[in-house]
């Protein structure tokens, strides 16, 4: 047994090289997308949101964030001057910073949404849109668990 160990111990690191095959398989078979949250509409703007994963918020620069897709409906994406996805108890204003800013150049866009440490019962996920005429449009969703 001892001889066996002495002879073959330095082959163990070869098992690490099996992992890239596993990760390649994982990358080629991604998990199904999370389900979209119900479509919301206000005038000519409509949107759905979809969490990017099931995971709880992650830490970014010491603050909690969670990634979402924003799916604009009715070809309204090019009517958006700026849009933000944020968690708040009441409709938020346009922020000076760009946290939660919706980015992308097609109907499906993305946002890194700042999440509070504790979610209050009346917290909602707010999509705040400013259009090119300067009007503010707000859609919101109840936060799922």
């Amino acid at each position: 047994m001892k001889v066996f160990w002495l002879r073959y111990r330095f082959w163990i690191n070869g098992f690490i090289l099996l992992l890239p095959f596993w990760f390649l398989y994982q990358a080629l078979t991604p998990p199904p997308l999370e389900s979209k949250w119900a479509k919301k509409q206000s005038g000519e703007f409509s949107a759905e949101v979809r969490p990017m994963d099931k995971e709880p918020p992650y830490l970014h620069d010491g603050k909690r964030e969670k990634d979402f897709s924003v799916i604009f409906g009715d070809s309204c994406a090019n009517k958006v001057k700026q849009a933000y996805l944020r968690v708040a108890t009441s409709a938020p204003n346009l922020p000076d910073d760009d946290s939660g800013i919706v980015h992308g150049n097609t109907s499906i866009q993305h946002a890194h949404v700042p999440f509070p440490d504790v979610i209050k019962t009346d917290d909602r996920l707010w999509l705040t849109i400013q259009d090119w005429q300067g009007r503010i449009i707000q859609l919101s969703w109840v936060l799922e668990k």
């Binding site: 690490i16 090289l17 992992l19 890239p20 990760f23 390649l24 994982q26 990358a27 992650y58 970014h60």
Partner: peptide, 15 residues
């Protein structure tokens, strides 16, 4: 080594 990235790091990158 195709290890996944967990936002800011990958074990494979360290390896």
């Amino acid at each position: 080594l195709l290890f996944p990235w967990h936002h800011h790091y990958s074990v494979g990158y360290y390896l």
